[in-house]
């Protein structure tokens, strides 16, 4: 018996390879910036830095849980042990070659982390998790290569902008202008938290990447980048699943060696 190793995703194109890269938990994603944990907490706006975590239920004590074999097998994450509230962070990813798109975020999170609830909408992606675990994950996601200061937004509400044209500085539109362009430093600076409550001090998330660089890094197929139709493996995969779901929905017992 040889242990199976995941292959993640078909395709030979750059976006396909990049998709495999973000999904593979063995690949350590590049850290491009270091936003301090206190600043991450400020941007999320669920508690003040240094403030105690609020809890929704008493701490989980070993041996005092309901008698369930699965609870004995599945180790709770830190925040669950402490009974933390469940809080969220939500990212908006621009269609203009953002490093990652919302749907691949779900694949990435669920391949790399445990104990989270995630959901994808057209232009945004929410993660809900126990507060202290969420903060760690949020910092990693803001610091690493899947975040671009100009093309990724941290937005709890009024997330609109992912499919809008970029502004003159190359920033994704935000009706609540949570972040602004610092002309002198050529950096993106957060001035409001994720629900647009003004921050008491500005938080820099660094310099945006160049379009040429982003086109190499993105997981997004685009007609003016890499067209999905040009990656035969990816298109063939989509057609195959569609066909097999249909045949399986009709007479699964007759689907053999397809």
């Amino acid at each position: 018996m040889t242990a199976y190793k995941r292959q993640f995703y078909p395709g030979n194109s750059t976006p396909a390879k990049n998709r495999r890269r973000v999904m593979d938990p063995k690949v350590k994603l590049k850290k491009l910036r270091d936003v301090s944990m206190d600043d991450v907490v400020r941007i999320m706006g669920h508690r003040n830095p240094g403030e105690d975590y609020k809890s929704i239920h008493p701490p989980i004590e070993e041996g005092k849980e309901p008698d369930c074999p699965i609870r004995k097998l599945v180790e709770p994450i830190e925040g669950a042990k402490k009974g933390d509230r469940i809080r969220y962070i939500q990212f908006t990813d621009s269609v203009y070659f953002a490093p990652i798109s919302p749907y691949q975020r779900a694949w990435m999170y669920l391949s790399r982390y445990r104990g989270l609830d995630t959901g994808t909408l057209s232009g945004r992606q929410i993660i809900e998790m126990r507060e202290r675990d969420l903060e760690k994950l949020a910092k990693e996601m803001i610091d690493n290569e899947t975040f671009d200061p100009a093309l990724t937004g941290i937005r709890g509400a009024t997330v609109h902008g992912h499919a809008c044209r970029l502004d003159e500085n190359g920033l994704m539109f935000d009706a609540w202008q949570r972040y602004v362009w610092d002309k002198d430093k050529k950096e993106v600076v957060y001035v409001k938290d994720q629900v647009a409550i003004p921050l008491d001090r500005k938080i820099s998330v660094g310099k945006p990447a160049s379009m040429a660089d982003l086109k190499k890094r993105t997981t997004i197929f685009r007609a003016d980048g890499v067209d999905m139709r040009d990656d035969k493996e990816v298109t063939a995969y989509g057609l195959r699943i569609h066909k097999l779901r249909t045949l399986g929905g009709y007479q699964p017992f007759n689907v053999k060696d397809v």
Binding site: G156, A157, T158, H160, G161, C164, F173, A175, W176, Q177, V195, A196, I197
Partner: peptide, 12 residues
Amino acid sequence: ESISKNLNSGPG
């Protein structure tokens, strides 16, 4: 793209 004068949803 429309920009509202005040925040129209959320805690703010």
